[in-house]
Computed example of a mutant assay.
Amino acid sequence: MTAEVCMMNRLAVVLAADSATTVSRWVNGEKEERYFKGANKIFQLSDHYPVGLMIFDSADILQVPWETVVKCFRAHLEKKPFNTVEEYAQELFSYLSDNPRFFPESVQTDQLLRPVRSEIFGWLAQSKEAEAAGGNQRDRLDQIIAERREVLDALEMSPCLGQELAEKIVVDHREAIEKTIADLVSYFECDPPSDIAAAVETAFLQVLKHPEDHLSTTGLVVCGFGDHEIFPAMVEYVSCGIVAGKHLHIKKSEKALDHDNPAWLSAFAQTEMTDTFNLGLSYPMYAQLMITVTENLAEFASQVATASGGEIAAIDDLDSLVQGAKDKIGSAVLPIPMKPPLCSEMIAPPVSGMISPPV
């Protein structure tokens, strides 16, 4: 379990995190994860200015530890200031892009092709299931690809890549994925897609338009004081690694204090402890409470109907009535909607750091 907190007021920023972390690697085609309880998750992003970085989820990016990346970035940055915290984050992302010293092309290619191959494997497996049920395997395969492509065409390409670079990626690696399709067709003893080229493009688009779901990710929280910021600010991203020399990142949230907002507190990754502190209970407790309420409401309705001589089966919308009552109880217990936790790692002793503007 990873638990991290960012707290800001007009004077300073405090970051706190447990020291457990996850390192992922691939061995013989299978993903392995190792857990460490002595990792550093909080870094000073500049040696000269009050800006920090906190990480969660994976501790490395393409097998390079974030700690190593940040140390080298600080040396690269030297005494260069930026007006906002957002600009510090963008400078870090620019440093990660087009950096073969850290991320050789072969490593980038391996990270990309692995989930593309996995996607195609899944399609063929689904089409074989249809054949086992008496359907036509190729027709089902073509249907799966067409439905997936229809959804993908409606989505915008990540601005980190752009449409032109995405098309180049498909062209550069088309032959490797066509070979994968041939190998998998032989493995499954089935027919290939009717349109191989469309299948290859669709598989790549599935990964490139949903990088957070297919590539190794790290949560990044950049916070502190930009050179032109009177009060502190925070911006949260998800890093999805490096593809074709470009760092893929997705902005998740941001917060800047001002004259009307003097303080702010938020948790990242596992939020159970801060939810309990702020709201009085955590998500798992709240979820279990709502399950118990739902089960007992249905039983209570049945008992009332029986005691009154009525027929519970005569109530057509019993489920919606129970759901409505449950929602009212849930809102009364906790007016603020809760989100489920994101991680399930082992907790370790906390570490913390404070970032404040220069005097």
Score class of each variant (00 low, 15 high):
P104E: 11
F204D: 05
V221K: 03
Q108A: 13
D195W: 04
G134L: 10
V207N: 04
F188V: 08
Y187E: 14
Q137G: 09
S194D: 09
I145R: 05
L208A: 04
V185H: 05
A182H: 13
T202L: 02
A125K: 15
P159V: 06
Q126V: 07
A203M: 02
Q163C: 00
D191F: 10
V207P: 01
N136T: 06
V116D: 07
V200G: 05
E189K: 12
K179M: 06
I120C: 09
R149T: 01
A154E: 11
H210E: 03
E150K: 11
G135P: 07
I144T: 05
V200Q: 07
E178I: 04
P159E: 09
G162F: 03
P192N: 07
I181L: 14
S194C: 03
S106L: 07
L124Y: 05
A130L: 09
E175H: 08
E119F: 02
L205G: 00
A203H: 01
R117D: 13
W123L: 06
D172S: 13
V185E: 09
V116S: 07
S186N: 14
R148E: 14
H210T: 01
C160S: 11
I169D: 04
L152Y: 01
K179E: 12
E131F: 09
R114L: 12
D139A: 13
E167Q: 12
R101Y: 14
L184V: 05
K168D: 13
R149M: 00
G135T: 08
T202F: 01
Q163G: 00
E201W: 04
L220E: 03
L113S: 10
F121Y: 15
L124M: 15
V185I: 11
D191S: 13
L215P: 08
A132E: 12
I145D: 03
I177W: 05
S194P: 03
S127V: 10
L152E: 02
V170G: 04
Q206T: 14
V207F: 02
A154K: 12
E164H: 04
W123T: 05
L155I: 02
D172K: 15
A182G: 12
G134N: 11
A125Y: 12
